[in-house]
């Protein structure tokens, strides 16, 4: 589904990704772990097309389509969802307002009929319920005044509404208390654990992986995948640290 080959990217002219290769097939859940500053968020942003993250080499395709030929909103329509490590606050713009427009822009891009106001609200309510989030929160301005945990849950609600093919979830578990962690974990499973979908979890901790069991675990260090393995690799990392395991 997602095929990344020898990806190189710079941020502010500084090389961050230095030849990263990763293949994620439909139905798989992958986890990327790695020390701070390794380039994990840079990977997500580069795939999402954030301005300032420049691809200097390599390729990335989503179901065969060259991601780097597409604008950020076209990548979303192609099925790529990025769960932000730090979700952005947008005063004056409500979740329901922009998500309905977003969902319909995506549907239009795929040649599907738009959702009516009623259909959209029903969908939003269902996904909010899945994440135990009050529907009223979605009528508020995007992330404004939300706690860290609420922002992460709101990201998962958005993922549910937009129904992507692949989700790259950047430290979705940070800032969550134990209950919210379980709710998010179960939400990710309910929304994304399907034969035609895939997930790339970026995390520091085993605790999220207790809920969302990965098929593969990778260590990202110095802008490259330096080690890959099964779920046991995460436990090994937790016990011995990145340096010992990735050396």
């Amino acid at each position: 589904m997602l095929e990344i080959q020898n990806l190189q990217a710079t941020v502010a002219d500084k090389p961050i990704l230095k030849g990263l290769s990763l293949t994620i097939n439909a139905g798989e859940i992958h986890a990327i772990m790695g020390p701070n500053g390794a380039g994990k968020s840079t990977l997500g942003y580069t795939l999402g097309g954030r301005p300032g993250y420049e691809v200097t080499g390599g390729t990335a395709t989503l179901d065969g389509a060259d991601l780097f030929e597409l604008e950020p909103h076209e990548r979303a329509a192609a099925g790529l969802f990025l769960g932000f490590q730090y979700p952005v606050e947008i005063p004056g713009v409500s979740f329901v307002q922009f998500l309905r427009e977003s969902a319909n822009a995506q549907r239009k891009g795929r040649g599907e009929a738009p959702l009516s106001g009623g259909e959209f609200l029903k969908l939003a309510k269902e996904k909010a319920g899945l994440l135990r989030m009050d529907m009223d929160m979605l009528k508020r301005p995007v992330n404004v005044g939300f706690s860290g945990g609420e922002k992460k849950r709101a990201e998962m609600v958005q993922m549910g509404i937009l129904d992507p093919k692949i989700a790259i979830l950047d430290e979705t578990d940070s800032g969550l208390d134990i209950d919210a962690l379980r709710i998010c974990g179960e939400g990710i499973n309910a929304i994304m654990r399907k034969p035609d979908k895939a997930v790339l979890l970026i995390t520091h901790y085993q605790r999220l992986l207790d809920y969302v069991k990965p098929d593969f675990v990778h260590v990202l260090a110095g802008g490259r995948i330096v080690k890959s393995g099964g779920p046991e690799l995460a436990l090994e990392l937790e016990e011995h640290g990145y340096e010992a395991v990735a050396a």
Binding site: G49, P72, H73, A76, V88, F98, E101, S102, A103, A105
Partner: peptide, 25 residues
């Protein structure tokens, strides 16, 4: 705000729509 524009684009909103929404607000 560039960050907000990217956030909206990542959710599928075309740039002109994202800009309009933010200017309205």
């Amino acid at each position: 705000d560039q960050q907000s524009l990217f956030y909206l684009a990542q959710r599928g909103l075309p740039p002109a729509e994202a800009k309009k929404l933010m200017l309205h607000a």
